[in-house]
Design a protein around this nucleic acid. Structure first.
Lengths: 242, 242
DNA sequence: CCAAAAGTGTTTCCGTTACACCCATGG
DNA sequence: CCATGGGTGTAACGGAAACACTTTTGG
């Protein structure tokens, strides 16, 4: 009876056209203060059981893509209100050997210390440094490469990096993040001036703890300006950096 | 029998997951030498017959997305080897009232004089100036807005504009294109210097015809350099332009 | 020879770079 | 008082912007 119902529905809609499986795969970047990392899962389910892949799931019949991507990210990290961006849709005919499946890749930036570590572990989730990413199933390696290129592209022009840091952070921390993203050294003094010139940072009056040297100023993001200016070009990196 | 075959197939694949209709919609930009234009169709088929929309079609079971997007563009314009870029996938649950349908939007740049005008007319295709676009079905207006924003964003940094011009073109023509994209005036002398400094243009030795003034040099694109440097940043526009 | 558009040159200015110096903290 | 890292200042450089002038063409 399920079958005949399905057929009847299609007759009133786009009969004759193909219907496809549609998955969402999440490229999850995190920053631990030193290195830029990627969250992957070791699959304990079919297909490709035992291999590494991105966290993914299928788009449901009555779920839009924003909800779906956040649901899937939440299943692994426990996080909500995460910065996510739709990247690209992959549609190679043979990309999934089991059945024709499209995949919409989503790019997520999280503060690595915020997520639910036990939940992630229970789903077989592990963090990898970017220079140490294992082989991934299907076209997931291509998705990761594209996402990293996109991160580098976008972080050069937009104040994206804040998404990877705690609410309060210091300029040296932000600089370490940029150095991790581009795997290059930056001049401390010029970086500081460039960031402050955007007027996006608010001095909280506090200083960070720890370290046996001068304490750095803790800033927070001016959310209002951040949202308004997000699409402006800021050029956070030196020339020819990207 | 089609029905039972379909059911059997699903059982061996991702049984229990939803399958969705997936469409491709093309945002087709063209340039006529003065204005930036958009190619739309007046639908002579259901749903939303009689209304304006983007050119679209369904992704087929055994067709990848690149092939599908080019097929759909070709059906309306007769063109092949067109610059196309996947933009974004739209998945609102109610975006298509007839049935749940995802749409992958593709952004196309064509030389307006090259396309098959009779074919386009036979499919009810018409060109609109960007300041005069009619109401479109579903979320197609949003797609157009996003595509225009993307064009402006990308053309500011990459030598994208050449795709909209003939093989041989003059610098003043290119400047008119940029002025149309951004709806702003540019300084002739600085623009020329900036474009030539990219080394992407080759002097053909020819001059353009027509006009009762000095004839401009016809350039062609250095395809090799163009492909190699495409992802570099060039900053074709003045500061704060975008 | 005039108008209109195309091509080339120059000065000025501002942002970036590449530096040096001072300050705070813990040991 | 010393090592380490954070904060601020400055001179030199280079590219972009804002200009003027010359050249070509058709009428």
């Amino acid at each position: 009876m399920e079958v005949s119902e399905s057929v009847n529905l299609e007759k009133t809609t786009y009969n004759g056209e193909a219907k496809l499986f549609v998955a969402i795969d999440c490229i999850i970047f995190g920053f631990d203060g030193e290195n830029l990392k990627l969250l992957l899962i070791k699959r304990n389910f079919e297909p490709e059981k035992g291999k590494w892949s991105l966290m993914g799931g299928f788009v449901r019949e009555h779920e839009n893509l924003e909800d779906g991507s956040h649901r899937i990210l939440n299943e692994l990290t426990g996080l909500e209100n995460v910065y996510m961006e739709q990247m690209q849709t992959y549609g190679g005919v043979e990309r999934d050997p089991l059945a024709r499946t499209l995949s919409i890749s989503y790019f997520a930036l999280i503060n690595i210390h915020d997520h639910d570590k036990e939940l992630a572990l229970s789903k077989n989730g592990f963090w990898f440094n970017l220079d140490n990413v294992p082989d991934l199933i299907f076209d997931h390696s291509e998705m990761v490469d594209k996402a990293l290129a996109h991160l580098r592209y976008k972080a050069a022009l937009h104040p994206l990096g804040f998404e990877l840091l705690p609410d309060k952070f210091t300029i040296p921390q932000l600089q370490k993040l940029y150095e991790a993203i581009y795997d290059k050294q930056l001049d401390r003094r010029n970086f500081s001036r460039k960031i402050l010139s955007t007027q996006l940072l608010i001095d909280t009056g506090e200083k960070n703890e720890g370290g046996s040297t001068k304490k750095a100023i803790l800033y927070k993001l001016d959310k209002e300006k951040y949202n308004n200016q997000f699409n402006d070009f800021h050029y956070f990196t030196p020339k020819g950096f990207v």
